[in-house]
Design a protein around this nucleic acid. Structure first.
Lengths: 337, 337
DNA sequence: TCCTGGCACTCCATGGTCCTCAGTGCTAAT
DNA sequence: ATTAGCACTGAGGACCATGGAGTGCCAGGA
């Protein structure tokens, strides 16, 4: 069983290993931390911790290194999220003020987060799923084509060119625009398909083909691509880390949008910090990394996630603090927009 | 002076070094290439080449390695751009067909280029500078705000929310939209500032403030941010390379948008391939990389650039071939849109 | 005059040996 | 239960010898 002191030893091992990146021995522990016992006692505790799988030795006659399970216990029970320093708070404010549009908010956020944590930061664009339609615009481009622009209440804009409509009259486009907006503005995106279902039957037959084309593109753009956009920054910070897996594998994983989406997607409890450690990640190339992620949104409505990817050997309290703070801050910015 | 044979030796040194990543010696050269002379003769030529600074020895009793100057001569006079294999041509076609909008074209292009070259690819969005206004749309968002969408003939869409207009009437917005489109659609972006100069004087005084706000945002979005968007892919390919500079420096440089823009921007002769080798790059962190870049556009109008960043020790003919082919292909796609 | 074979030389890379030392597990004493 | 003491282990660094790839130079040959 793990008594108080063994837990203290584990905490000390994690902290020292994160700092030094070297296996930590019993003597070093006794020196640096006030555990009140001798190295020999610590050694006994270490044997117990090793038997339970929380720490391991790279080889005999080396110090101990935390296992994934050890980090997990550390995160769950032995550490608390570290609040940001006031300097860091100021950095956040100065970084995010003055962003003119959603693209810029996201771009700045991801850079900010990577600089705060000195790791790779990931930011997902606000999801379309939970947002609602603010306005749909149809803009004739020449005689054959129409551009559709959908604006959501989260500031996100989707645009598409719709082609091959045959001859389209300006007035017909205007009619359709009006009809569309009456039908769906203010609705949540999930409600859009139902709301437009019987729209084609309401337009004059000679315009029906155009209406159908426009609607199919509309549905496609809202439903199919909804979680797609993700931005990342700070890959340079990976160069400093020596991974057990190859750096190449990690970089490759990070270039796959689908991987990133799943990585952020697997949070259990929304509005909470989620930490996935080492082998808890589904992706092969990320077995030696940890992911700290959080939801952001306005009010208690979650719009999307942000996260940080780094070596399992990371400063969890600090990283968690930064992720949480940035997530909250984005929420405020978006609410203010 | 450099006679034919010395040039042949230099070419052989570059080719072998690119293949093997090891200093190449006189004997190996004589074996692998049909130079028709003995190793001793090659050695003499190498001494000459070294005196002129085209190759160098990592240490005595090692083979020779090309210098930046050597690569430069190789690129300028000793190699020709390698046409793509038919498999590669097919890859390009299948990769780019089916892209629905500009974002997707760019995203696919950059992945394609990085896969073809196995290096880091950079793609710049079509510049606004040389494109012309297709349509300007003003969309009221609630009573106080207006969204402006500018669509260019290259498929690029800029959008901005304009805030703090006070009470804006729907009809006033419509009037302004019509006036704007009459004034600037079809114009090159460079001509826009002149064309809208006296527009405020033409609107009724009570709407003048709104008009001024909208115009200032319009000019700002077109002029100030024009070259900003750049996308990159394939950083994982850097992991395989051992740089003399640190990998971190290279990754950091590649995360700076401004650096990338300058990197692509410094082409001398548009519509041609540009190669910058090693120290020819202005940026510290990129001293051990080479950049191959090219313009793309429709007709003979250059819209923006694409490029590849890799180690100076790269397959120049192959990389140049891929960059040129992809640049041409994007041109076609954009023209067809 | 240019090329080539021969030769002595240089220096890196490889691998073996030895040694140090941090850290361990175990035992006996407190 | 804790601790001091001690023998043991294995990684890593220093040192050295060796092999070999590659060189520069020179003298002889086309």
């Amino acid at each position: 069983m793990l008594d108080e002191r063994k837990l203290a030893v584990l905490r000390a091992v994690v902290e020292d290993f994160v700092n030094t990146n070297e296996p930590v021995g019993s003597k070093a522990l006794a020196d640096r931390h006030r555990l009140g016992v001798s190295p020999a006692t610590i050694r006994n505790d270490m044997v117990a911790l090793e038997e339970d799988g929380y720490i391991t030795q790279p080889h005999t006659s080396a110090g101990r290194v935390p296992t994934d399970k050890g980090y997990r216990l550390f995160v769950d029970r032995l550490s608390s999220v570290k609040p940001l320093s006031s300097a860091e708070r100021r950095a956040i404010e100065s970084f995010l003020t003055g962003a003119v549009d959603l693209d810029e908010i996201v771009a700045r956020t991801v850079r900010l987060l990577s600089q705060l944590t000195r790791q790779v930061a990931i930011v997902q664009y606000p999801s379309l799923t939970r947002s609602s339609v603010q306005h749909v615009e149809l803009i004739p481009l020449g005689a054959q084509r129409v551009m559709m622009v959908v604006i959501t209440n989260t500031g996100r804009v989707e645009q598409r060119v719709i082609d091959g409509l045959g001859e389209t009259k300006e007035t017909a486009v205007n009619d359709l625009r009006g009809m569309l907006n009456r039908a769906i503005s203010g609705l949540h995106l999930g409600e859009v398909p139902g709301a437009v279902e019987d729209l084609p039957s309401q337009v004059p037959p000679e315009q029906r083909q155009m209406a159908v084309s426009v609607l199919s593109v509309l549905l496609e753009s809202l439903v199919e691509r909804r979680e797609e956009k993700i931005v990342l920054a700070g890959t340079a910070n990976l160069a400093a880390v020596d991974f057990t897996a190859s750096l190449r594998d990690v970089l490759e994983a990070l270039e796959e949008n689908m991987v990133l989406i799943r990585l952020l997607g697997e949070a259990k409890d929304p509005s909470m910090l989620t930490v996935r450690i080492g082998a808890e990640n589904f992706h092969e190339g990320l077995r030696s990394t940890s992911v700290v992620s959080a939801d952001y949104g306005v009010g208690n409505q979650s719009l999307a996630k942000i996260g940080v990817v780094g070596p399992t050997r990371m400063d969890y309290p600090g990283t968690m603090g930064a992720v949480r703070a940035v997530a909250r801050y984005i929420g405020q910015i978006l609410a203010g927009q």
